[in-house]
Amino acid sequence: MSAARWRDPALLLLALAGLAALVAALDPRLSRVVALRDLVFVVDVTRSMNVRDMDLGEGAISRLDAVRAELPRVIANLPCGSRAGLGVFTERRSLTFIEPVEVCENYVPLSAAIDALDWRMAWEGDSMIVRGLHHALDRARQLDADLVFLTDGHEAPPPPFAGQPAYGDAATPVRGAILGVGGATPMPIPRFDRDGREVGFYRPEDVQQSPRRIGKPPPDAASRPGFHPRNNPYGEADLSGEEHLSTLRGAYLHDLARTSNLGYVAMSEGVSSVASAFARATRSRAEVRKVSVAAFPAGLALAALALGYAARVFMDRRQQGH
């Protein structure tokens, strides 16, 4: 049994495989720093979320259905130990359903609660997104979590000329992200009757086309048709407009996110883009965790063993070729 015997590559590989398998059997563990996040997901359930312009591969579905399908995947993508809460937005405020809970242990109830989201939960028809966002930010701060606000950005009634209020409390930066949901093409908004049956779509005259009459009128109000200093200081004659159709107002939400110190990403960009937006825009808690790395030496052992047999075949061929 001399040293020369070890020149046989198959034998060397076998020895390597044995060593690696032994290491794997000892179940080595490394400590790894995991970035945990505490997020409150607030889902817009206003009527524009019923627009069927999302496609997850099985035909057109509504924005809310897309959220119901995608949000569990977003949550599943968070590392165990992260916490997720759930709420809805409509009118001008949010309502918390579930305060943040650990995501892995509670994944089943969380995804069931997401699946139960329904436009019928909306307690009023308005969709004042900026006010709802501010309310949700306050709420997230109380819960000591970051906000993820899922919306299509369709304000109803339309935002006023004078612009929207900024988020008041800049001193305490609650972070978070806006997740845009919807498509780029204007699509009609389904309309439901009192008993929740779909009865067609909103027509131009069914919705308020003119901006909210709050704050300053536009500077060129006097030159607008229908202007009257007392009766119509905003100069509106607009019974036409596109407010009965809905798109994802990405640019609007992007601006809103920027001024509110939030991140923005469209949900259609996929779970990994959403995760990287969370990484940029939300706070994380670092937790050191022992992670089993036995798979690496085990994989090495397997590879060495397979190579050993391959080397044997190769060498036998060569010998026979002589």
């Binding site: 809970v101 969380l110 069931a112 609660a113």
Partner: peptide, 14 residues
């Protein structure tokens, strides 16, 4: 409106 805040579950933390 009624809202299903949490469907039937045996996960007490939720």
């Amino acid at each position: 409106a009624p809202m299903l805040l949490l469907p039937m579950t045996d996960h007490k933390p939720a």
